[in-house]
C-alpha cells in the first residue's frame, strides 16, 4: 500500500506539472511532447487502478496514434517550428479564476461525498476477458454505434482534408 501511494504521488505530480506545461508553453511541439507525459502518466494510473487493458489501449491509441496526428497537424498547419507569441487569447487571465472556481467546487463536493473512504485493498486486476465479455455482451449496441462513429469520422476526415 505504501509503495502504491508513493508511486501514485510521484506520477500525479509529474502529470500535473506536465499538464500545466501543455497549457502554458509557447511552443506547439513542446506542448505535444508534454502531452505525451500526461498521457503516459494516465496509463500508469490506470495500471494502479487495476485496469491493464485500458492502460495498454491508452498507450496504443493515445501515445501511438493521436500524438502522431497532433504532430502531423502541427507540421501541416505552420511553417515555423519554435516559440511563438500569439498562442493565447487576450483574455487568458479569465481562465485562471474559471479553473480555480471549478477546482474549489469539485474539491468541496469530493471531500463532502467521499471523505477518507478507501479503495478495496485486495482488488484483483480486471482481465481482458472480463472487459470483452462486457463489451460483446450488455454493451454490444453502443459498440456497434461506436464502430459507425469511427467509420464516419474516418470518411469525414478524408473528405475534409483532401484537395479537390
Amino acid at each position: 500500500m505504501i509503495a502504491q501511494n508513493i508511486g501514485f504521488l510521484i506520477i500525479a505530480i509529474v502529470m500535473i506539472v506536465a499538464a500545466l506545461r501543455v497549457v502554458t508553453t509557447n511552443n506547439v511541439v513542446h506542448a505535444a511532447l508534454w502531452l505525451v507525459v500526461v498521457l503516459a502518466g494516465a496509463a500508469a494510473q490506470y495500471i494502479l487502478l487495476a485496469a491493464e487493458f485500458v492502460a495498454v489501449t491508452q498507450v496504443l491509441v493515445y501515445i501511438g496514434a493521436v500524438m502522431v496526428l497532433f504532430l502531423f497537424g502541427t507540421m501541416l498547419t505552420r511553417a515555423r517550428i519554435g516559440a511563438e507569441s500569439d498562442l493565447n487569447n487576450s483574455y487568458k487571465k479569465l481562465g485562471i479564476p474559471v479553473g480555480l472556481v471549478m477546482l474549489v467546487a469539485m474539491g468541496l463536493a469530493l471531500t463532502d461525498s467521499f471523505g477518507d473512504e478507501k479503495l478495496p485493498e485486495s482488488a484483483k486486476v480486471v482481465s481482458t476477458q472480463e472487459v470483452s465479455d462486457q463489451i460483446f455482451g450488455p454493451y454490444l449496441l453502443p459498440f456497434w454505434a461506436l464502430s459507425f462513429v469511427l467509420l464516419a469520422a474516418v470518411v469525414g476526415a478524408i473528405v475534409l482534408a483532401r484537395k479537390d
Partner: peptide, 16 residues
C-alpha cells in the same frame, strides 16, 4: 479534478 480544471483553463486561454 485538477487535470480537468487545467484542461478547462487551456480551452479558455488558448487561441491556437
Amino acid at each position: 479534478a485538477i487535470l480537468f480544471c487545467i484542461g478547462v483553463y487551456g480551452v479558455v486561454a488558448r487561441k491556437n
